[in-house]
Nucleic acid binder design. Structure first.
Lengths: 69, 69
DNA sequence: AATAAAAGTCAAATGAACTTTACATTTAAT
DNA sequence: ATTAAATGTAAAGTTCATTTGACTTTTATT
């Protein structure tokens, strides 16, 4: 899962800590999501979408997954 | 978090088991999500959106949360 | 009424999201 | 070169998403 958080932050000149506080999560959570360590929960994705006034799909992009079997 | 999975299934005449298999999750996961027991992960929400060819927001609706403090 | 399929539910287990604390590295300013 | 702020990272713990297996209840069909 890719995301545009870093860019959206940069456009607004926000630090990871400021974004974290706006979303009520820890700074490490924002850092981990930006670095692709894990995906946000759906509720957190919704919060970010509301904050930036964007659709979830405009912030987070699913990598089309290779299904074996 | 509300969702329209049951209706979307009904429109297509799919069982929970069929939807589960289309999304590569267990039937119990679909049941629990439909019954509001928990929210899907973001990747699962994306899968559902792709399957139904809808935006995530057209399937899942966040309840605007009451923030105390 | 009997049967079968679908839906609901529960418990135990696993993995992933998220927290807190703490420290190291990078970036940018003086 | 120092300093401060921002970013990166790691470990340990908690909560929640998801699985498997099993059982009960509901809904349709015959």
């Amino acid at each position: 899962m890719k995301n545009r958080l870093k860019v959206l932050r940069a456009e607004r000149d926000w630090t990871q800590a400021q974004l974290a506080s706006a979303l009520n999560v820890s700074r490490q959570t924002i850092n981990a999501i930006e670095k692709g360590k894990f995906d946000p929960s759906l509720p957190l994705a919704f919060k970010a979408a509301r904050l930036f006034d964007l659709a979830i799909e405009e912030i987070f992009q699913d990598q089309v997954e290779t299904v074996e079997n």
